[in-house]
Simulated scan of single mutants.
Amino acid sequence: MTADPSAALSELAADRELLGRTSTAERVAAILRERIAQGSFPPGIRLSEERICGALGVSRNTLREAFRLLTHERLLVHRLNRGTFVRVLTDTDIRDIYRVRRLVECAAVRGLEEPPYDVTEVRAAVSAGEKAAGEGRWQECSTANIRFHQALASLAGSARTDEMMRGVLAELRLAFHIMGDLHRFHEPYVTRNQEIVGALEAGDAASAERLLDAYLQDSLQQLLDAYPQEAAEE
């Protein structure tokens, strides 16, 4: 997968105003995390300290602390005498990510109390994904799909769960990016997302959980079937 570092750096420069006068490593990490999730910095690419510092207007110490935070989240990897790179996931990583997803997302749906459920954010993500898919904007469809799953996890009503899932789903995007063909990976799930939110809107959490569990199993297998060969080609 090819990338345009200049375009990515221009996007970072646009993010500079988000930092304000009290810029911190956490804010820098949040910006870089989002850009990695969006595919601006794809797996395997080396991150230039000098150019990113210039784009965001931060010190090297601040950026290195942000890198450290993202390395702890398994989004980046530091290679001695070579620099910092966006991670390339292994199939073991992918299996573990899906294990966590099933534990958290299915439990969030299972733990819902009496309907009606507030699934406003879930529905918004589904609608955004359908619109993007209908217009052939598969990168945006991928982003909407991630937001759909984040919204499902948020049904648990736990700030700690939300924070953990943001990291898990950002890491998952590394696998999606290396595949290249987002259309092939996401198109089947546009309809399945609709089925899940439809069950929730009907007050049928049990059916929604069964649909979600099967969905995650199928998604994992599809990813593993394609990932090793295409990752090797990368």
Rank of each mutant, 00 (worst) to 15 (best):
residue 67 F to N: 03
residue 146 I to D: 14
residue 158 S to D: 13
residue 132 A to N: 05
residue 218 D to R: 13
residue 222 Q to H: 09
residue 5 P to L: 07
residue 2 T to Q: 10
residue 157 G to M: 02
residue 125 A to I: 09
residue 175 A to Q: 00
residue 121 E to N: 12
residue 67 F to K: 03
residue 230 E to I: 15
residue 206 A to V: 11
residue 37 A to W: 00
residue 54 G to S: 10
residue 112 L to T: 09
residue 181 D to L: 01
residue 57 G to K: 04
residue 175 A to M: 00
residue 92 T to W: 12
residue 180 G to M: 00
residue 165 M to N: 08
residue 42 P to L: 03
residue 203 G to N: 02
residue 227 Y to D: 01
residue 214 A to R: 11
residue 169 L to R: 14
residue 127 S to R: 13
residue 33 R to Q: 11
residue 74 R to S: 15
residue 85 F to P: 04
residue 232 A to G: 14
residue 65 E to A: 15
residue 98 Y to W: 11
residue 144 A to E: 06
residue 25 A to D: 09
residue 199 A to E: 07
residue 87 R to K: 05
residue 178 I to F: 00
residue 74 R to D: 15
residue 171 E to Y: 03
residue 107 A to S: 13
residue 195 E to S: 15
residue 87 R to M: 01
residue 31 I to C: 08
residue 32 L to W: 02
residue 100 V to Q: 12
residue 79 R to A: 12
residue 15 D to L: 10
residue 51 R to I: 02
residue 177 H to Y: 01
residue 114 E to N: 10
residue 233 E to I: 15
residue 164 M to Y: 14
residue 96 D to V: 10
residue 51 R to A: 14
residue 206 A to M: 01
residue 94 I to K: 01
residue 25 A to H: 04
residue 56 L to T: 10
residue 57 G to N: 00
residue 105 E to C: 08
residue 59 S to N: 01
residue 59 S to G: 07
residue 192 R to D: 07
residue 60 R to C: 10
residue 152 L to M: 07
residue 82 R to D: 14
residue 152 L to W: 04
residue 225 D to T: 13
residue 42 P to A: 05
residue 50 E to K: 14
residue 223 L to I: 09
residue 148 F to P: 03
residue 67 F to Q: 01
residue 150 Q to R: 08
residue 144 A to W: 05
residue 226 A to L: 06
residue 75 L to E: 02
residue 100 V to L: 13
residue 201 E to M: 14
residue 1 M to G: 09
residue 212 L to M: 13
residue 157 G to H: 02
residue 161 T to D: 01
residue 229 Q to N: 09
residue 30 A to T: 07
residue 92 T to V: 11
residue 162 D to G: 10
residue 39 G to I: 00
residue 60 R to W: 11
residue 171 E to S: 12
residue 182 L to E: 05
residue 47 L to N: 04
residue 147 R to P: 00
